[in-house]
Simulated scan of single mutants.
Amino acid sequence: MTEAIGRRRNTLLAGIVLLKKQAPDITLSEMLAFLYVAENPGVRVKELAVLMETTDATASRASRSLLQADEPGAREPGRGWLLMASNGREAVSRHLYLTEAGVELVQRLDALIESARPIGVRAAPAELRVRR
Rank of each mutant, 00 (worst) to 15 (best):
A4Q: 14
G6Y: 03
G6H: 06
R8H: 12
N10E: 09
N10H: 12
T11P: 03
A14S: 15
L18H: 03
K20W: 00
A23L: 01
P24F: 00
T27F: 02
L28H: 08
L28A: 11
F34K: 01
G42W: 12
G42R: 10
V45L: 06
A49K: 04
V50Q: 09
E53Y: 05
E53P: 00
A57C: 04
S60V: 02
R61G: 09
S63M: 07
R64N: 15
R64F: 09
R64W: 08
S65H: 11
L67I: 12
D70W: 14
D70N: 15
D70Y: 15
P72F: 13
P72Y: 14
R75W: 06
P77G: 06
R79D: 03
R79H: 08
G80D: 07
L82R: 08
A85H: 11
G88Y: 11
G88A: 13
A91S: 14
R94N: 07
H95C: 13
L98H: 02
T99C: 11
T99K: 10
E100M: 10
G102L: 02
G102V: 01
V103I: 09
E104I: 02
V106Q: 08
R108S: 15
L109D: 06
D110A: 13
L112D: 11
I113S: 11
E114A: 14
S115F: 01
P118F: 11
V121I: 13
R122M: 09
A123T: 07
A123G: 05
E127W: 10
